[in-house]
Design a protein around this nucleic acid. Structure first.
Length: 262
DNA sequence: ATGACCTGTTTAACAGGA
């Protein structure tokens, strides 16, 4: 069977319900990871998606952050925290396991901290969060199962993933400490689904609302689908649903997705 | 045009985003 897995930072579920449903009807994903729902769990419109035959897992927070996973396959397990800091109250991580004929598929919806400004406490928080993610991913990779770490990483991996690398060099999304941590994560043995599909540069997933970034194609690639070897072996397709950025009242991010031949 | 935003909340300006 083919399993289609997508991730999308929707920048507010309340403001994006119609866009999200329209895209889901077009794209027909089996699993959708959402970030920045900006809603407490109780206010997430789960019933709308249950009516579309999706199971819903939510880790919400008032006003900020918040992640969710919608899945046509039932959840065998749901984890709502990234291990490593019990005091961390920001809702940025949600992990779920579903069963397919070949075994288990584990999917995480990740909203990695932005980290700007870099001279504030926000940047060490980002780097610490990345350390926790590296440790957790390392443990999960030991399971030797299909693992998909999906989400908004707030990390520009390479100069070819940003329209103007020089302008972004000191930014929390692109500075060397951030790149080093991201490389450390990848070096655990993860595959960037886009890079497994193409060497093309200038492919973006985010365009700022300001300064005409979208019409000028001043974008950055910060949303990623990272795959364990067991998942990468099954990868048959990757794409960016760029057209949604032209919709009325769009998110500033667009959905990205993969198909796995399970 | 060297300009230009969006969301949620304390519903009027902020905080936060990237």
């Amino acid at each position: 069977m083919t399993l289609k897995i997508a991730t999308w930072n929707i920048n507010g579920i309340k403001a994006r319900i119609e866009r999200l449903q329209e895209w889901m009807k077009q794209a027909e994903p089996d699993i959708v990871c959402l970030q920045e729902i900006k809603s407490i769990s109780d206010n997430f419109p789960s019933a709308l998606f249950e009516d579309m035959n999706y199971n819903v897992a939510v880790h919400g927070q008032k006003s900020y952050n918040g992640v969710a996973i919608l899945s046509k396959l039932p959840f065998d397990e749901v984890i709502r925290q990234l291990p490593g800091d019990e005091a961390d109250e920001q809702a940025r991580y949600l992990e779920a396991v579903v069963s397919v004929p070949g075994g288990a598929v584990r999917v995480a919806s990740i909203y990695l901290p932005n980290g700007n400004p870099v001279d504030s406490e926000k940047y060490p928080y980002k780097l610490g969060w990345m350390d926790r993610l590296i440790a957790h991913a390392n443990g999960l990779l030991g399971n030797e199962e299909a693992l998909i770490l999906a989400g908004d990483y707030n990390v520009i991996p390479e100069p070819g993933d940003v329209h103007d690398p020089d302008a972004w060099y000191g930014d929390a999304l692109f500075r060397p400490e951030t790149s080093d941590k991201f490389r450390e994560l990848m070096n655990l043995g993860l595959t960037d689904a886009l890079r497994a599909s193409t060497d093309e540069t200038g492919l973006y997933t985010f365009w700022d609302y300001q300064a005409g970034a979208w019409p000028k194609n001043n974008g950055i690639r910060i949303d990623h689908l990272l795959l364990s070897p067991e998942a990468a072996d099954k990868l048959i397709r990757y794409d960016i649903d760029k057209h949604t950025r032209s919709w009325e009242r769009p998110s500033d991010h667009v959905p990205i997705w993969i198909e796995l031949d399970i």
